[in-house]
Nucleic acid binder design. Sequence first.
RNA 1: UGGGGCGUCGUCUAAUGGCAGGACCCAGGAUUUUGGAUCCUGGUGUGAAGGUUCGAAUCCUUCCGCCCCAGCCA
Length: 558
Amino acid sequence: MSEDKRRHFIEEAIEADLAAGRFDRVQTRFPPEPNGYLHIGHAKAFSIDFEMAAKYGGHCNLRFDDTNPTREETEYVDAIKEDIRWLGYDWDDRCFYASDYFEQLYRWAEQLVEAGRAYVCDLTPDEVREHRGTLTGPGRNSPYRDRPVAENLDLFRRMRAGEFPDGARTLRAKIDMAAPNLNMRDPVMYRILRAYHHRTRDEWCIYPTYDWAHGQSDSIERVTHSLCSLEFEDHRPLYEWFIRELGIFPSRQIEFARLNLTHTVMSKRRLRELVEGGYVAGWDDPRMPTLCGLRRRGYTPEAIRDFLKRVGVAKSDSVIDIALLEHCLREDLNRRATRVMAVLRPLKVVIENWPEDHIEELEAVNNPEDPAAGTRRVPFGRELYIEADDYREEPPPKYFRLAPGREVRLKHAYFIRCERAVRDEAGNVVELRCSYDPATRGGEAPAGRRVKGTLHWVSARHAVPFTVRLYDHLFVTPDPDEAPDGDWKTNLNPRSLERLEGCRAEAGLAQAAAGDRFQFLRHGYFCVDRDSRPGAPVFNRAVALRDTWAKVQAGRVG
RNA sequence: UGGGGCGUCGUCUAAUGGCAGGACCCAGGAUUUUGGAUCCUGGUGUGAAGGUUCGAAUCCUUCCGCCCCAGCCA
């Protein structure tokens, strides 16, 4: 109730604009550059864009910011669309490209030249930098700053016509080389660049810069609220300068803090380095914070959206504990995932007092959180597999599982007692000989009897073998930059992926399709990977169950 | 030494001059046919110092700390 009244600062700004009549509707946009895959930080951005539009009855456009042909490709356009849709957002027929506006942008540039507010500059990149001045000192005017309008116009047209080599000249806004805000020191609007553009092909040899293209694109689309991240705050005066000089629709830019997560990196540059350096298997490696990586890992769109909602919207730099993301996934999957018994490190168990070929079918609940999920039947026989970790020759204190002479419950089945362990020549335990109690069918404890431990198991004869990939944090430290040698890559977690073969699961899992998610009882949530083959499924662990026993043990060791 | 931002439990985030609350996390406990889930309890927080006020996280002053900006990237 009071929840509904809580507004973050962008909502307050939008409502104030509406109330003041600055705008009479809300239009936003998500402007990705098609030069890489979207990560969860982008998801925060576009969920704000789409949610704000939806909340105030407006629309959100998808607009590719494709002003730099040297690094943009169609491949990324498709991937970006897929990821946004996967999260549940839709731009209907409003998918645009900054390159759609190149002609209009060019005409507006001529207009600024004619108005004496832009000029063609012949300075080299090095000279431009030198003239720009420093953070504390003013810059110097370019010697070309006072070229007559006619000359500027002529030169600019010839730039477009391809008469000059790449980088030879630029078109610059004529603002103020002494401005304390560096962005106002005659920013470049156009550079000469002969590169194949993914949409306009080789139609252009001059390309607009971000500053020149972005605000004008917003204005063309009549975007009311142009929401972006904090580092563009310094650009807002320039954003507004162009719009004012042109006298076009006055979009309003509002900045918010981008999303950061512990135990991972979020910059495109670093993610690319991980991929190209072979530190991960690709952009969709389940350890990556990319949306395709999270999807492959087993994350649900619902969990991610819930996470984004909890993270909030503010202007202070923040780093969210990745545990919150994991919590959101567990909460979602706990409610929805079908439970199944799967043994990751099998240890054979022979029930000595169970008839040789007798098989009994026992009823198992599919999801205790959801009665509608129903039940299934699981076969029980003389030979089973349990988790190797569920047996200890010398059990530590508070160990509730199997040990010589101890009794436990096999989930949905019977109580069993460990009679003795069978060893191989090296002395390793390779098999447990146990007895079962017929009076405990279904796992029911006869009056007055209790067991502390309940184990999962599978029938050896019926189990399907599978492979599993256990994922952990990509970096061992919360902040990868906290490296003694200054290289964030030294904090890469050497155990971020553990691959296990020869796991055994209930037979039903053989039919699972890529993307299906399950809870492996007592282990965690797992997702079928696309690398699965018929009869040989591969599972990715999306997130482990909370494990208080593991915590107790870790505390004992540390 | 310039400009633009930001400082509330360990981490995020509320409060809009009137009891500093929630979530995650952590620590206990209850319960449990998942050491899961659920429930309960607890956890030295308003960067600092002054000022205004009956009353300040909130308003004023000064200071301190952190982030961003010197691409023809976005």
